[in-house]
Computed example of a mutant assay.
Amino acid sequence: MHRRKLLQWGLSAVGAGLVPLAAARADDDIIGAILQGKHPNAPVVPAAPPVGLRPTPVETFAAQPAVEPKWVKLRNIHTDEKLEAVYWENGEYVPDAVTALNHVLRDYRNDEVHPIDPGLYDILGKIAEKTQTKAHFQVISGYRSPATNRMLSERSGEVARHSLHMDGKAMDIYLEDISLQEIRAEALGLQLGGVGYYPKSRFVHVDVGRVRAWSGT
């Protein structure tokens, strides 16, 4: 009951002589108790939160995993050109690095440059990670022009006439601190393309063609 109504009710009762003075005082005590919330019949009023202490909603965001840049280290054994480059960063291949890699992996016999499939760098990167190599990949053959591939095919029956080297989709490699057997095993385990093993010639062929494996000399 509102305080004013309670007071009016008490005063009118006294003024009308309906209650004795002691009773009126008792009513005043009851009214005070009700207003202070101590009387059993006092209405329950929810307490207001302290000013400045109300919890502030906090937006939560899913943590985004950090994406590491991808590196490749290689050396063209014919020109002695070395390159260590970040070829993939922020979700895409780095154009300048890819261009520089295309140049290093050119056909050294006639200096013809051809785009190299970046998937080859992914294969090299995974082999490097699995073998924990500290060395550059030694590249015996990257891109081959049709003229060079034809010449090599006529010399050796182990060079395919329609080699993926002509499309910039194959490399012949080795590492100075990792055995050929381990390089071959890791390349086979990736299942990302063709793997040729040439123990006498001391290199492993990797390409981004269909998954297959073979051995040569």
Rank of each mutant, 00 (worst) to 15 (best):
W214S: 09
V195P: 00
A24F: 03
A160N: 07
L180C: 02
A24R: 01
A48K: 08
V67T: 04
S215D: 14
D27T: 13
R161L: 13
K134H: 12
E158A: 11
A23F: 02
V58I: 11
T79R: 07
H162P: 06
L120F: 09
V45R: 00
S156P: 12
Y198Q: 06
V72T: 03
L74G: 03
T217Q: 15
A13S: 11
S156W: 07
D96T: 15
R210A: 10
T131K: 02
I123M: 15
V195C: 07
R144K: 13
K130P: 06
D107F: 07
E112G: 03
L21M: 06
K169C: 15
E154R: 14
A23E: 09
H205S: 04
L124M: 14
L101R: 01
L6G: 10
G194N: 05
A185Y: 02
Q191G: 04
I123V: 15
T133I: 09
L120V: 09
E158R: 11
L6A: 14
V208A: 08
M1N: 11
A42Y: 10
V159A: 00
R4V: 00
K70W: 08
T60N: 05
P20H: 13
H78Q: 06
V104H: 09
L175W: 05
G10Q: 13
T148I: 09
S179H: 02
L105W: 02
P49Q: 12
L180S: 03
A85K: 05
N149A: 12
Y93G: 09
I127G: 04
P95R: 04
R3K: 15
A66S: 09
A33C: 08
G189Y: 05
G196Q: 07
E182Q: 12
R144C: 11
I183E: 02
I116P: 04
A26D: 06
R106E: 02
I77C: 02
G10W: 10
A22V: 10
N41Y: 03
S179R: 01
A26C: 04
G157N: 11
N90F: 12
I77E: 03
I127Q: 05
A97V: 06
K5Y: 04
Y93F: 10
R202E: 14
P50Q: 04
R210L: 08
I123L: 13
P20V: 11
M151N: 12
L190A: 04
V159S: 01
L175F: 05
E182V: 10
